[in-house]
Protein backbone atom coordinates (compact mmCIF):
# COMPACT_ATOMS: atom_id res chain seq x y z
CA UNK A 1 0.00 0.00 0.00
CA UNK A 2 1.51 3.28 -1.09
CA UNK A 3 1.51 6.24 1.26
CA UNK A 4 -0.18 9.45 0.21
CA UNK A 5 3.23 11.11 0.12
CA UNK A 6 4.57 8.49 -2.30
CA UNK A 7 1.47 8.72 -4.46
CA UNK A 8 1.90 12.46 -4.66
CA UNK A 9 5.47 11.94 -5.82
CA UNK A 10 4.60 9.32 -8.43
CA UNK A 11 1.75 11.27 -10.04
CA UNK A 12 4.12 13.92 -11.47
CA UNK A 13 6.44 11.14 -12.61
CA UNK A 14 3.58 9.64 -14.58
CA UNK A 15 2.51 13.05 -15.89
CA UNK A 16 6.04 13.59 -17.17
CA UNK A 17 6.00 10.20 -18.90
CA UNK A 18 2.64 11.03 -20.46
CA UNK A 19 4.14 14.24 -21.85
CA UNK A 20 7.17 12.35 -23.19
CA UNK A 21 4.89 9.72 -24.73
CA UNK A 22 2.87 12.39 -26.54
CA UNK A 23 5.94 14.30 -27.70
CA UNK A 24 7.41 11.18 -29.29
CA UNK A 25 3.99 10.25 -30.68
CA UNK A 26 3.78 13.59 -32.46
CA UNK A 27 7.24 13.09 -33.95
CA UNK A 28 6.46 9.55 -35.04
CA UNK A 29 3.25 10.68 -36.70
CA UNK A 30 5.09 13.39 -38.63
CA UNK A 31 7.29 10.68 -40.21
CA UNK A 32 9.89 13.18 -41.35
CA UNK A 33 12.92 11.16 -40.34
CA UNK A 34 14.79 8.43 -42.20
CA UNK A 35 13.90 4.79 -41.70
CA UNK A 36 16.37 4.05 -38.90
CA UNK A 37 15.74 7.39 -37.21
CA UNK A 38 12.02 6.79 -37.37
CA UNK A 39 12.53 3.34 -35.87
CA UNK A 40 14.54 4.88 -33.02
CA UNK A 41 11.75 7.37 -32.30
CA UNK A 42 9.19 4.57 -32.32
CA UNK A 43 11.34 2.50 -29.96
CA UNK A 44 11.73 5.30 -27.44
CA UNK A 45 8.05 6.20 -27.77
CA UNK A 46 7.13 2.62 -26.91
CA UNK A 47 9.33 2.81 -23.81
CA UNK A 48 7.63 5.94 -22.54
CA UNK A 49 4.28 4.25 -23.12
CA UNK A 50 5.51 1.37 -20.96
CA UNK A 51 6.69 3.71 -18.20
CA UNK A 52 3.46 5.65 -18.16
CA UNK A 53 1.42 2.45 -18.07
CA UNK A 54 3.49 0.88 -15.31
CA UNK A 55 3.03 3.97 -13.14
CA UNK A 56 -0.64 4.03 -14.06
CA UNK A 57 -0.96 0.46 -12.83
CA UNK A 58 0.79 1.25 -9.59
CA UNK A 59 -1.26 4.37 -8.88
CA UNK A 60 -4.61 2.85 -9.85
CA UNK A 61 -7.46 5.26 -9.16
CA UNK A 62 -4.98 7.92 -8.08
CA UNK A 63 -3.16 7.85 -11.43
CA UNK A 64 -2.40 11.06 -13.29
CA UNK A 65 -5.31 12.18 -15.43
CA UNK A 66 -3.29 14.36 -17.75
CA UNK A 67 0.22 14.86 -19.06
CA UNK A 68 2.58 17.53 -17.75
CA UNK A 69 1.21 20.37 -19.89
CA UNK A 70 4.14 22.68 -19.30
CA UNK A 71 6.67 20.11 -20.49
CA UNK A 72 4.56 19.10 -23.44
CA UNK A 73 3.97 22.65 -24.63
CA UNK A 74 7.59 23.65 -24.26
CA UNK A 75 9.05 20.65 -26.05
CA UNK A 76 6.37 20.48 -28.71
CA UNK A 77 7.21 24.09 -29.61
CA UNK A 78 10.95 23.37 -29.65
CA UNK A 79 10.42 20.46 -32.02
CA UNK A 80 8.92 22.73 -34.65
CA UNK A 81 12.53 23.37 -35.68
CA UNK A 82 13.50 20.04 -37.22
CA UNK A 83 17.21 20.81 -36.90
CA UNK A 84 16.78 20.69 -33.13
CA UNK A 85 14.99 17.38 -32.92
CA UNK A 86 17.82 15.40 -31.33
CA UNK A 87 18.98 18.12 -28.94
CA UNK A 88 15.40 18.71 -27.80
CA UNK A 89 14.83 15.02 -27.17
CA UNK A 90 18.18 14.74 -25.41
CA UNK A 91 17.11 17.52 -23.06
CA UNK A 92 13.78 15.80 -22.45
CA UNK A 93 15.41 12.47 -21.57
CA UNK A 94 17.95 14.15 -19.30
CA UNK A 95 15.16 16.01 -17.50
CA UNK A 96 13.31 12.73 -17.03
CA UNK A 97 16.44 11.11 -15.57
CA UNK A 98 17.01 14.03 -13.20
CA UNK A 99 13.36 14.24 -12.17
CA UNK A 100 12.91 10.53 -11.47
CA UNK A 101 16.17 10.55 -9.49
CA UNK A 102 14.91 13.45 -7.39
CA UNK A 103 11.68 11.54 -6.78
CA UNK A 104 13.59 8.45 -5.64
CA UNK A 105 15.33 10.65 -3.08
CA UNK A 106 11.96 11.34 -1.46
CA UNK A 107 10.09 8.07 -1.96
CA UNK A 108 9.67 5.89 1.09
CA UNK A 109 8.67 2.80 -0.91
CA UNK A 110 11.77 0.83 -1.91
CA UNK A 111 9.79 -1.05 -4.56
CA UNK A 112 8.67 2.16 -6.23
CA UNK A 113 12.22 3.46 -6.05
CA UNK A 114 13.35 0.28 -7.79
CA UNK A 115 10.72 0.74 -10.50
CA UNK A 116 11.88 4.28 -11.19
CA UNK A 117 15.52 3.13 -11.11
CA UNK A 118 14.77 0.61 -13.86
CA UNK A 119 13.27 3.46 -15.90
CA UNK A 120 16.18 5.81 -15.24
CA UNK A 121 18.85 3.42 -16.48
CA UNK A 122 17.05 3.11 -19.82
CA UNK A 123 16.22 6.79 -20.17
CA UNK A 124 19.93 7.42 -19.63
CA UNK A 125 20.60 5.06 -22.54
CA UNK A 126 18.07 6.99 -24.63
CA UNK A 127 19.95 10.18 -23.82
CA UNK A 128 23.34 8.70 -24.72
CA UNK A 129 22.12 7.49 -28.11
CA UNK A 130 20.28 10.73 -28.88
CA UNK A 131 23.50 12.62 -28.08
CA UNK A 132 25.37 10.59 -30.69
CA UNK A 133 22.94 11.97 -33.27
CA UNK A 134 24.18 15.46 -32.45
CA UNK A 135 27.95 15.07 -32.14
CA UNK A 136 30.72 12.71 -31.10
CA UNK A 137 31.36 14.73 -27.95
CA UNK A 138 31.49 12.17 -25.15
CA UNK A 139 30.46 14.64 -22.47
CA UNK A 140 27.23 15.37 -24.32
CA UNK A 141 26.34 11.69 -24.12
CA UNK A 142 27.59 11.00 -20.60
CA UNK A 143 26.86 14.07 -18.52
CA UNK A 144 23.45 15.27 -17.47
CA UNK A 145 23.34 19.05 -17.08
CA UNK A 146 19.55 19.14 -16.60
CA UNK A 147 17.80 19.91 -13.35
CA UNK A 148 14.85 17.97 -12.02
CA UNK A 149 11.40 19.40 -12.46
CA UNK A 150 10.13 20.65 -9.14
CA UNK A 151 8.77 17.79 -7.05
CA UNK A 152 6.68 18.11 -3.94
Amino acid sequence: MLSDADINLLIPAQALELAARDIYASLVSRATKSGDEQALLELIHSHHVAYEQSLNGVLGKRAATSRNAEVYTRFFAALSDSSKTWSTLLELENIAVATHTAIIEKLSSAKMAALLASVITVEARHAAILATQISSNLSLALDNPQQALVTQ
Binding site: T101, I104, E105, A110, A113, A117, T121, A127, L142
Partner: peptide, 24 residues
Amino acid sequence: VESITDPKLRADAIRIGQQEARHA
Protein backbone atom coordinates in the same frame (compact mmCIF):
# COMPACT_ATOMS: atom_id res chain seq x y z
CA VAL B 1 18.20 0.83 -4.94
CA GLU B 2 15.60 -1.59 -3.58
CA SER B 3 17.92 -2.88 -0.83
CA ILE B 4 19.32 0.41 0.44
CA THR B 5 17.26 1.74 3.33
CA ASP B 6 18.07 5.45 3.08
CA PRO B 7 16.12 7.12 0.21
CA LYS B 8 18.84 9.71 -0.29
CA LEU B 9 21.44 6.99 -0.79
CA ARG B 10 19.13 5.25 -3.26
CA ALA B 11 19.13 8.42 -5.34
CA ASP B 12 22.91 8.77 -5.02
CA ALA B 13 23.31 5.19 -6.21
CA ILE B 14 21.16 5.52 -9.30
CA ARG B 15 22.73 8.91 -10.09
CA ILE B 16 25.95 6.96 -10.66
CA GLY B 17 24.23 3.90 -12.15
CA GLN B 18 22.60 5.95 -14.89
CA GLN B 19 26.02 7.03 -16.12
CA GLU B 20 27.19 3.41 -16.21
CA ALA B 21 24.17 2.72 -18.41
CA ARG B 22 25.28 5.51 -20.75
CA HIS B 23 28.75 3.94 -20.93
CA ALA B 24 27.17 0.61 -21.83
